[in-house]
């Protein structure tokens, strides 16, 4: 482990904050990422249906395998196409 001295005014927490969640989904494009866990598609299908009913644009993505991080081209594609991502983490 290495330790450095904070170069800032220390006005924010030393741990990196999570991205702020959007207050509403209206007007945003939502990505649904299937990580290739069994039955993740059932969960995401339900979400897609619920979101689409509210008029929210949804795009679907799928990782090739649950065992590895998403390939860089897929990550870049998602970043370029949607405002936020929901993924089904467990089966």
């Amino acid at each position: 482990m290495s330790t450095v001295l904070d170069p800032t005014a220390e006005l924010s927490p030393s741990t990196r904050p999570r991205l702020v969640r959007p207050e509403q989904l209206e007007g945003l494009t939502v990505g649904l990422l299937d990580i290739s866990k069994p039955r993740g598609n059932i969960f995401l299908d339900q979400l897609e249906s619920l979101l689409s009913d509210r008029g929210i644009e949804v795009r679907r993505y799928m990782k090739p395998t649950v065992a590895k991080p998403a390939p860089v081209p897929l990550r870049q594609q998602i970043v370029g196409e949607v405002d936020l991502v929901i993924e089904g983490l467990a089966d």
Partner: peptide, 12 residues
Amino acid sequence: ARRVDFGNDEDE
């Protein structure tokens, strides 16, 4: 100054 620790697997 506040000390900020990085994880073992983290590239500083």
